Amino acid sequence: MRANTNPELTAAWATVPDVAKAQERHEEAAKLRRAFPRGKSPAEALAALQAEAVVTFTDTGKWPTDYAKRVAKAHADALAWESEALALRNLEHATKAAAEDLRDSLSPDVLEHLDGRLTEILDAAKSAGEALGGVATAEQAIEAGGDVLDAWRRLTSLLKDYRNVRAAQWDVLNAVSLSDDQSRMRTWRAQGHGEVKDVRMADVPPYILDVLRSGAYDVEFLVWVAQGGAGYVPTSYDDLEIHVTAATEPVAYDDHGPLVDLSPRVLPPREPRPAKTYTHSSTPHLDASQPTPAPPKANAIHPDREPSTADYF
């Protein structure tokens, strides 16, 4: 792994020595490729000899008698050089892929180690925080002296370890995540996610939320996390995403959506419209054995129809 000054990150990766070994192999392969001398490809070597023979003939009028022998040797040497150069390039790519695959597959072990370290730090901070007795500043701790001052000094030392664990956590998560996931994690981290679980962000005190978002950890924040018991280290990107969702979405859902009033609408009764009887209307004659009924009394006039071409031609 690359050099770093974070002791927590170094100790975490040391729990999976296979990753460091694979990284060393990749670095050795890269050094071999860079140290390999520059040479010519077979095509370049042949082109150089051809150009040289042409110049010789142009200057002397004689074609080199050893041309074929020189061409065979140059081609063989160039082919050997090109083969080794390609092999070293493939070696570098293969060792890099192997180191990355091993790092990705073993990163949960590293993050679990960091989670264990965080638990140790918070357990110690919880007992030290109980000894403060409400003291919130270094001046108050100095004034109180005794056990309170010792507890403050202890918390100050633990605060440095806490910062290193959090920095190591994000370093590992970024190292094993794709660029899109890294972008989302930066957004989540800026919103305060990734350090406490089972707590909705709306329920976090404003001052604590500001510290989570900025990363400006202090003793008061460390005591709050230790006493709350919600501190954790995500073991993967998926684990982080689960806790982010739980911390931001509502606790309960209405699967049916908003209530809809489905009761029938009561409409006013429609006024009956009297039937229209025209001058050409007739009363149905249902019984042929009876006299023809008189035509009904007209109460409407039929409008004139639209004129058609038959009216004009």
Rank of each mutant, 00 (worst) to 15 (best):
H243Y: 14
Y67Q: 01
L155F: 03
S83K: 01
D210V: 05
S41C: 06
L122Q: 12
T248P: 05
L32W: 07
S41R: 11
A230K: 14
Y217L: 08
N299T: 12
A202M: 14
Q140A: 14
A275D: 13
T248L: 07
F313W: 11
N4R: 08
R186A: 13
P303L: 12
P205T: 13
A190I: 06
R200N: 09
V110F: 02
L9Y: 02
V233I: 14
R163Q: 14
S127M: 11
S281G: 13
L114D: 05
D123L: 11
L91K: 15
E24M: 14
E28I: 11
E8D: 12
V233S: 02
T95F: 00
L267C: 04
Y237E: 10
Q290L: 15
V135W: 03
V19L: 02
G39R: 00
Q191T: 06
R34Y: 00
K69V: 12
V233E: 02
R213T: 08
A99L: 03
E8P: 04
S177F: 07
R25H: 07
E92P: 03
T248F: 02
A29Q: 03
P295G: 04
N6D: 12
E139N: 09
R213P: 09
P250G: 12
L86G: 02
E28Q: 15
H302Y: 13
E44T: 12
A98G: 06
W188N: 11
Y162F: 15
E100M: 13
A14R: 12
F313R: 07
R270C: 02
